[in-house]
Design a binder for these strands. Structure first.
Lengths: 213, 213
DNA sequence: ACATTATGTTATTCACTCTTACATACAGTG
DNA sequence: CACTGTATGTAAGAGTGAATAACATAATGT
């Protein structure tokens, strides 16, 4: 052990946890640049390794992006879980809280949205990833199921309702992210918009609402 | 979308309408590849010009993509306009027809969706483009306004309702495009899903639906 | 010790975008 | 009709970044 770390630039030849370091570095770059087109070598530099090192851990840049995307989906799951506890489980407020949290997440991280749902996203990837992509969704499904029971609306399919509810939040988040909502209604707040939208929708589910064309 | 301007057999040194030819070529490449990462030289080849010629008309590839995107938004406007005449103006069916047409457009051209709303999309572009991006939206606003009057619901803001309605269609289209809906409800049809979702929402707007928490 | 495996480096290749310098057509003017 | 300016084309190549190849270093197991 006489060879003490001279520490010219690198302490150890082996990084130790390069794979994770690269995922973190890529995540930072995406956040900072607000886009996915960082260079592999930049992620490598951030982890203090050479440009070729990442290819020991990821087949190509897309694989690295996918790994970052997986982390992002897990983070979104956490967001959904936390939102669940903001209001009584199964209440309308609980559902709305989840939608709002979803919108906040998307709005705060537009570049991650691109990663998760954009052209480089999971659209053309395999099924395991798809399951990851929708794992957080089932947190919502649980709430919706509870809501249906509390509201005495057992005739509705919680899964179907959840998809519709998700789509409302997703659509508003997407439009807000693109600036469309600000452009159309400069004074509007996406969260309020979602809340009133959700309330209208939930009201519409109740039998008292007569179907009229 | 398949505006086949077959002016390719050009014998002259000057092309004549290279700008448009490139837009068409790029659109075809996007449609064929299902992605935006075609090479500029491929678009140039399709127009029978050299690889540098496009740069006389477009500052860079992004500018070409933007031009294609503008054409795509105009095509979407047409889709919306046509859908308006599928049912009595101002009826629920008319609104639903518009949403369905929107969903069809997005589902049929996922690569164009990426172009129009993705990371290479208009998010970071200027205001004129934003107006183009939402011009078709005001077709919907007109229908919604008529619907409000026919339904005797003048207390609602048609603009706000339209945004919410748009978001429902947009969200479902986006999730469907990513395969999420198929994954969650393999037997579900996005158009039916949208229709029932829209009906629920419109029902919820009627005063008979009591606000309950 | 020594072989094996994992992980890193340098140097290089390849594809693609974008630029530069030059060439050609066409329209307007004397 | 020559003359000239502008628009538009070409050819060649610089610059960027992903990915690979060949080699180097460390950790591990027997």
């Amino acid at each position: 052990m006489s060879k003490n770390t001279e520490a010219r630039e690198c302490k150890n030849y082996h990084h130790g946890d390069l794979r994770n370091a690269l995922i973190v570095a890529a995540g930072e770059l995406i956040e900072e640049k607000g886009s996915l087109d960082f260079a592999m070598i930049d992620a490598a530099r951030r982890a203090n390794v050479s440009s070729a090192a990442p290819y020991r851990h990821f087949e190509d840049k897309d694989a690295l992006l996918q790994a970052v995307s997986e982390v992002a989906f897990l983070a979104l799951d956490d967001v959904a879980r936390q939102a669940t506890s903001l209001a009584p489980y199964g209440s309308s407020a609980c559902l709305i809280a989840q939608g709002k949290a979803y919108i906040t997440f998307v709005s705060d991280h537009p570049a991650f949205y691109d990663l998760m749902w954009g052209d480089l996203g999971l659209r053309k990837r395999n099924l395991e990833d798809m399951e990851l992509q929708t794992s957080g969704f089932y947190i919502l499904v649980g709430c919706v199921r509870a809501w249906c029971e509390q509201a005495g609306l057992r005739s509705h399919d919680p899964l179907e309702l959840s998809v519709k509810f998700w789509a409302m939040a997703h659509g508003l988040a997407c439009l807000a992210m693109n600036g469309n909502i600000t452009q159309i209604m400069p004074s509007a707040d996406v969260h309020s918009l979602f809340e009133s939208s959700a309330i209208t929708f939930l009201d519409g589910l109740r039998p008292s609402a007569a179907a009229v064309t």
